[in-house]
Design a protein around this nucleic acid. Structure first.
Lengths: 135, 135
DNA sequence: GTATCTGCAAATGTTTTGCACTCCA
DNA sequence: TGGAGTGCAAAACATTTGCAGATAC
């Protein structure tokens, strides 16, 4: 049984062609794709795929901690299959999201803060990206 | 001339009753209000106020760096009149946003990263808040 | 007087929901 | 076979836009 099938099983999700295709698009993907981007990529092979299925599956993956949902893009949901700690940069000019591999040790490593239980921490940089600065 | 009127002038914005009312709601406000919350509070006094005006003014204030726009709430835009550095906590159960006054010195103080020009940095904590944990 | 601002209504774009049908386990 | 998953369409929601009339300066 393939890696991806095992993952779905571990998260208590049924194995379907649509879900395998979504995991396939996400594997090693560093473009922080939106729902639409993922949909577009798969719909070529599965013309009947619906956005609802993509939304549904992504939400379940996020809940099961299989992937990370980013809060950096104010316009749409974006997903990152890379769950190891790193930061993100959002270009306010072109809307692109970049990985920032700057040291993550500075982020406090705590279970609670001010009485609140911490599940995730995201560090978001915003500004003008390298490419847009040149123009 | 009042403080708020000076501010508007400094940002090159005309002084209107609507804008003064918006600044009034924001002053010292630590609830990270959404557009709707701000609208609701003012519309009682100015029944003809429109959402478009609130959106328009808030966008200009953000652009002029008069207030901060938070990226912590995936469902809607939220605003913070406090521009001094601090973090935020988002409760995934109740949707409330809390200030986190934990040390901010750990956040890197850089103008550029990976060739990108940095304008703002936000640190977002997520999880279950104190109140919801008790339930 | 004129450019900016406001308010309304319509449009846009993303995400969610309801439901009948399908298919995995 | 039963319950979970899918696809479609409609609904919901936040936000943006276009424009005519009002207002600040």
């Amino acid at each position: 049984m393939k890696d991806e099938q095992k993952k779905l099983k571990a998260w208590g999700l049924r194995i379907t062609p649509q879900r395998l295709a979504i995991l396939d698009v996400l594997r090693g993907n560093r473009t922080h794709p939106s729902v639409e981007k993922i949909y577009e990529e798969i719909v070529r092979k599965y013309p009947t795929l619906s956005m609802a299925t993509v939304y549904n599956t992504l939400s379940k993956l996020v809940k099961g901690r299989g992937i990370q949902e980013l809060d950096i893009d104010p316009k749409k949901r974006r997903f990152d299959p890379c769950t190891s700690p790193h930061h993100h940069f959002y270009c306010q000019t072109c809307g692109e999201v970049y990985d920032i591999d700057y040291d993550t040790a500075f982020v406090p490593n705590m279970k609670r803060i001010g009485g609140h239980k911490i599940e995730t921490i995201q560090v978001n940089f915003r500004g003008k990206c390298k490419a847009c600065s040149k123009k």
